[in-house]
Every structure is written in structure tokens, then in C-alpha cells.
Amino acid sequence: MKENELIFGPRIPKELWEKERKRFLIPSIVLVAAAVLLFISIFLPYWKITLIAPQYPQGLTASMYVNRLTGDVQEIDGLNHYIGMKPLGEAAVLERTLSIFIIIGIALLIAGAVYVHSPFALFLCIPAVMYPAFFLGDLYFWMRSFGMNLDKRAPLSGAIKPFVPPLLGEGKIAQFATVATWEVGLYMSIAASVLILVGLYFHRRAYKPLLIDSSGR
């Protein structure tokens, strides 16, 4: 076996490609679809929190994208200063700065797995599969960090105990009912994870016999 083949796996024999095109196309399409989904998710919101109180008939919302926060962030920050929470813009600065490059990177790794026919393809896909969990974990870390570290000199510091806002579902902070929802971007990244697993299954089914052919016997 050649050195290249150890990493990239065996190439598809021409006659087999002619005969069983679909067998090799399916894993490629599914993996590329996953990469595309992940890429598109950059432009879509991942997470949203809605604050509901009598003074805000439309509610206050903050939508989180991988690189920015939109919505009533200024108003929420304004309210948060009463309880001593730091401005939301100070959270996850590093993550937001790097996120687009990282996501494009892991999407390219998935696309790379299309050309890698060895089990090594699995390693290329691991970052993408783990990505939604990492995102949620990071979100939790920052929410905990912000919610638990309230400025003790804030006007309402006596009235509001440190808290961790929920990642998903309903909560309550002072007079605000909060609803956290997962948004389309996050679902797309989760769908990408699932697609990758499916793609890898077909990938194994397509290339494993070739691998045995080239290394065995």
C-alpha cells in the first residue's frame, strides 16, 4: 500500500465507478450537504431569548448568531445594569471573532472527508459532529459566568440573586418571564451532525470493501 493510500484510502476502480456510481455518490452528496448546511447556518440565528414584561407588549428579544447579537440588546443591557450584569457584548468575544473561520474550517474538513476514503474520514468529521454540543456548552458557560457574577454595587443587587438563564425553555428573572428558544441555525448545525453520521455510514459501506480489497489478500 502506498503512503497516500494510508491516509486518503483507495481510489475507486474505474469499472466499479461505472457500475455502482450511486454507491459512491451518496456518501459524497450527504457529506457535502452537511457542509453546506453548516456553512449556511453562519447567516442564521442560533439561539434567541425573549423577555416578557407588561412594559414591553412586543417583548424584548436578543437573537444570537455565531458572530453577533441582534435585537433589543441595548435595552436588555440597559435593564441588566440594574442587576449588575455585564453588557452582553462583552461575552464570548473570542468565539464570536473566530467563529466564522472555525465553521468554514470544519465545513471544509467535512468536504475533505469526501476525498478521504479511509476510516480517517471519521476524524475529519468529528469537529463538525461535536460542534452543536460545543456551541451549547460554550453558551452555557457564558450564561453561567454572566449570571453568577453580578456586580454587587448594582442598584438591585440585593433584590436579584445570581442565576443561570435557561438554555432552552422558560425562566423568570425579576418581573420578566424569559423564553429561550433554539433557532434555525442551531437546528441546521444539528441536522448537519446527523447528516454526517448518515453520510459516514454510507461512506463506510461504499469504501470498506475497497479497503479490504487493497489491504487484504
Binding site: 450511486k22 451518496i26 450527504v30 450537504a33 448546511l37 433557532e183 434555525v184 437546528y187 441546521m188 444539528i190 441536522a191 446527523v194 447528516l195 448518515v198
Partner: peptide
């Protein structure tokens, strides 16, 4: 087998569509 494979792909497409439907 072709049909089977297409059927196997169906859940994948459903999954991909789900988030869109979920929000709308």
C-alpha cells in the same frame, strides 16, 4: 435496491427540512 437506498435517504431530507418547518 435503488428504491431502498432512496428510502434510506428520506429521513435525512426530512431532518434537513425540519428546522425550517419548525420555525415557520
Amino acid at each position: 435496491t435503488r428504491i431502498k437506498r432512496l428510502l434510506a435517504l428520506l429521513p435525512v431530507f426530512l431532518l434537513a427540512i425540519t428546522p425550517v418547518c419548525f420555525t415557520s
